[in-house]
């Protein structure tokens, strides 16, 4: 009659998945290929078993993801037989918007704008995301069912009260909901669950010799020929791994010896830096994530 803390977190997430599938008109699951997305996908498969998840998955592809991420994505989709929509902001990519020249505007246009466009295009009313409250201060304040206006904006001062597990999924036309079933999981919980459930994750999470350059204190991997090197920069082979995955020019690697899941977990539990350090956009200013979310970033 005992449920461990992972059992409880799993039960909470599954309850949320089922509520959304039962009450929301057009749900979608945002799939980012990272470890949290792998856990989310695993939970969705468990929640509806023996049925397949009754909604599509969607990946907002910036075209700058690590190659290994895309390989992993395509393999998993085929293995699991799920319906995946891949959406790109083709217009902006054609204009040559890229992470080197356009900085913060790149994230706004290629990620945030693309996400908004895709949600509007397919008229999704609810989108599952793998956001966790332990990641960042403004996320710590966000509800599990988080409402977005017609412009996909979040209003942190006017969040819907969320009582017990009685989620209010009613929305007006044009509005939508972001749903975060693993809000209450920590990075440690994610890793422990990956181990317990034997969930496949992208090999970039494990340490290996990889070509990197050091830039502003971050180790950036040279993943393909598009990587622009600054004067004096020379790719060097270092044994590194990634704690979060995103666009390769914007994602910092950490030097590590952890080649297996157990070693990664051990390193994570002993670690003294939170995982978002390696995601460059958050560091610009206090409140930067809150600002982005108000503008429609997931």
């Amino acid at each position: 009659m005992f449920m461990s803390h992972l059992d409880k977190l799993e039960a909470e997430a599954i309850y949320i998945f089922r509520e959304v599938a039962a009450e929301c008109e057009r749900p979608v699951m945002l799939y980012s290929i990272g470890k949290d997305s792998s856990v989310m996908m695993h939970l969705a498969l468990k929640a509806f078993y023996p049925q397949k998840p009754p909604f599509p998955f969607m990946h907002i592809d910036t075209s700058w993801k690590f190659r290994e991420m895309i390989e992993f994505r395509d393999r998993r989709v085929e293995e699991l037989g799920i319906n995946l929509i891949v959406y790109r902001n083709e217009k902006a990519l054609a204009q040559g918007i890229n992470p080197f020249d356009n900085g913060a505007a790149y994230t706004d246009i290629i990620k945030t704008q693309a996400l908004k466009d895709a949600l509007t295009k397919y008229q999704f009313t609810a989108a599952f995301g793998g956001g966790r409250r332990d990641e960042e201060k403004s996320r710590a304040k966000e509800r599990i069912f988080s409402f977005r206006s017609e412009n996909h904006a979040w209003d942190p001062k006017n969040q819907r009260p969320e009582m017990w597990k009685l989620y209010n999924t009613r929305i007006n036309k044009g509005e939508s909901i972001r749903v975060f079933p693993i809000s209450n999981w920590t990075e440690k919980d994610i890793w422990q669950y990956i181990k317990r459930e034997n969930i496949p994750i992208v090999p970039l999470y494990f340490s290996k010799e990889r070509p990197v350059v050091e830039r502003d204190g971050n180790l950036i991997m040279v993943d393909d020929e598009r990587m622009r090197l600054l004067p004096g920069e020379k790719p060097m082979m270092k044994k590194v791994r990634f704690r979060t995955l995103g666009c390769y020019p914007l994602t910092g690697a950490v030097e590590s010896e952890a080649e297996t899941l157990d070693e990664v977990i051990e390193e994570t539990l002993a670690s003294a830096t939170s995982e978002r350090t390696s995601r460059i956009i958050d560091h610009e200013e206090t409140g930067s994530m809150e600002r982005r979310k108000k503008e429609g970033y997931f």
Binding site: R133, D134, E136, K137, S138, R139, A140, K141, P156, K157, Q159, S183, N184, T286, G287, E290
Partner: peptide, 17 residues
């Protein structure tokens, strides 16, 4: 965590830790 909370020095919404 919210900007308004920092400005006013009070807690407005629930924070989960």
């Amino acid at each position: 965590g919210l900007m308004a909370e920092r400005e006013q020095g009070i807690t407005i919404d629930v924070a989960y830790r």
